[in-house]
Design a protein around this nucleic acid. Structure first.
Lengths: 343, 343
DNA sequence: AGTAAATAGTTAACCGTTTAACTGGAGAGA
DNA sequence: TCTCTCCAGTTAAACGGTTAACTATTTACT
């Protein structure tokens, strides 16, 4: 490799000034066609590649987009655990970002302060916040000038930022209505957290609405929270249902992961699904169609969610629009074998 | 927010030169205790944060570590699909990297040329290559001066680079021996690709070795390849086994995802597991313990794999050792309900 | 007392680009 | 002919840090 070659090497080789090289490379029309030709061949011959760090410093633009995850304990592991969700979203984000020549920097937010510091010092052009963060962070974020796109945030922040989500309320409504239509009345709702998880809250609202429409009074005794959306927690909750809530005959879980854990527990105790219990999940992870029985669920297109979010942030960076973007993607009820008419 | 404040603002405010501020902030002992005090309070008062882009340019070190994935089609989606594996590894990597003050930049390699260009222009300090890449890339990579750590690569490159893997051969051996000990003789091996996937090749060698040790002659008719490690491909292969290979009574699949897909297909056709078929997977993804029956598998600690890989690259960057690191982590046989004595 | 070495700081070049401001010459219009 | 504009470049100052080399004191040693 030898030494890194710089724009001045190219300039010398082409017999012009560094500025001219820069103009040509940035497509600024300030150089005659013949010198442009000379410069371009020099670039080729020397195999010149601009140093992006220097470009960042000079242009005050890093061409990097950051993705933040909320960290509860120290690592991303809890977030990714059992969860195709974030991986799929990152895939969508990365796809768009790379196509536009940006790089993707990912970081867990250990503390709001760290997070903001990171954004400032790295000169990150735009930000994607996936999920729900400490409230303090949102307030402090307002001081940032960089475009920020929130994915699945609290309702109260939706109007202050670009915001992408799916129609969680509609999802909750579809799932519950499906169960109601099958004749179920004792329908449990299982979620991560009704207050701290914005998506769960909206799904609950849809659940409640569907019940009311069917003339069923929602009861808090049918609502269950777990501290994290995982198989294990679903499994434990399934056992709890068997012990303490024998009246329940149907479950709408706020994630497929939870639903599958619940299903496992019920089956282990000899319950038949969908004969004894009907179960609906949310997300449509791949495994849901492979479980026994296959899981009825609300499908959301997470890859697309990532694509939309990334596109928004890039547009905001490049000022193609100045108004806030609020996108609510649709969801779809996928009926499989885990739900059936109440006996 | 107003204007970004620079090191010169701090210097002015503390009545010293920018150099002194820099020395203090970099822990270079060249400033008296009392001026150091003044400088530090100035930093506090002005809320100064060094611009990392400028630091990168000046120090010729970006404090960023890149993670590359092999892209087959245009997006990461195929890689992450059904696959807890990469997410978990990223979690481990991010955990270590953040602790050491580095940032994590992720990128799919669309082409070897793009990939190398990216590394050079971004001034990435160190690189993690996850999985198997086009051979050309490895050759060209040698021209890079940045430390590179390969995770799960082809055998032929192992000695030229830092390399982290698990003992895939031992895994294949343990899985197969387990089946042999249960009395099985007709044991299929199902993998992604024996040539293009280095891990599968090693797992196959372990499989072969176990058979030979048991006095069973390995037969190519018991070896099956699929073009991608997914539920769907496992499912399709399961059906194929039922049709064309009625002699087979046990399956060792090179990933849990494949194993679970195969299991689903067999069960759908009325086969009982483990009575009719014994099945062993590889990885121990969460779902494996929740499947019915729960899946016997070879566990590898992927988070730890990420931790070790990230630690290696950081050590290499910081020159704590100059010899190549070759780490082979151990695997463990987890016996569950998908395997039983041959009838 | 005289020299050497350590201390505490400053200056200015440098990292590799970008870009506003300048220059000198050619062509057009009055 | 004289100005005005346009063209095709160049120069040099940013961008925001780092750090080698220098200066001016003070301390230590012979």
């Amino acid at each position: 490799m030898g030494e890194k070659i710089t724009i001045r090497d190219v300039a010398k080789h082409a017999g012009v000034s560094a500025a001219s090289v820069s103009y040509v490379l940035n497509g600024i029309n300030k150089v005659s066609d013949e010198t442009k030709e000379r410069i371009l061949t020099a670039v080729k011959e020397l195999n010149y590649e601009p140093n992006l760090t220097a470009v960042s410093l000079s242009k005050q633009k890093s061409n990097m987009i950051g993705v933040m995850f909320p960290l509860t304990d120290g690592s991303l592991s809890t977030i990714f655990k059992d969860n195709h969700y974030y991986s799929e979203m990152i895939s969508g984000i990365e796809y768009v970002i790379r196509k536009h020549g940006y790089d993707l920097v990912i970081s867990g937010a250990s503390s709001p302060a760290d997070c903001l510091k990171w954004i400032r010092t790295r000169n990150i052009d735009g930000l994607l916040f996936l999920g729900a963060f400490p409230h303090r962070l949102y307030e402090e974020m307002k001081a940032l000038s960089n475009p920020i796109v929130l994915v699945d945030t609290y309702e109260r922040y939706e109007r202050d930022y670009h915001h992408i989500s799916v129609d969680d309320e509609q999802g909750g409504y579809l799932a519950t209505t499906h169960l109601v239509n099958l004749g179920h009345k004792e329908i449990a709702f299982v979620a991560h957290h009704l207050v701290n998880s914005p998506v769960d809250k909206k799904r609950y609202i849809g659940y409640e609405k569907a019940l009311k429409e069917a003339g069923i009074t929602p009861s808090k005794t049918f609502v269950f929270e777990v501290n994290e959306s995982s198989f294990d927690n679903g499994y434990n909750l399934g056992n709890k249902l068997l012990q303490d809530h024998k009246d329940i005959r149907a479950v709408f879980a706020s994630s497929d992961t939870l639903a599958l854990g619940i299903m496992k527990a019920l089956q282990e105790k000899g319950k038949k699904i969908p004969q004894d219990y009907s179960i609906v999940g949310f997300d449509d992870i791949t495994f849901s169609s492979y479980a026994s029985p296959s899981l009825t669920t609300i499908r959301q297109d997470v890859f697309n969610k990532g694509v939309v979010a990334a596109t928004s942030v890039i547009q905001a960076i490049e000022h193609r629009f100045s108004t806030l973007q609020h996108v609510k993607l649709s969801v779809e009820l996928i009926i499989r074998d885990s739900t059936a008419k109440r006996w």
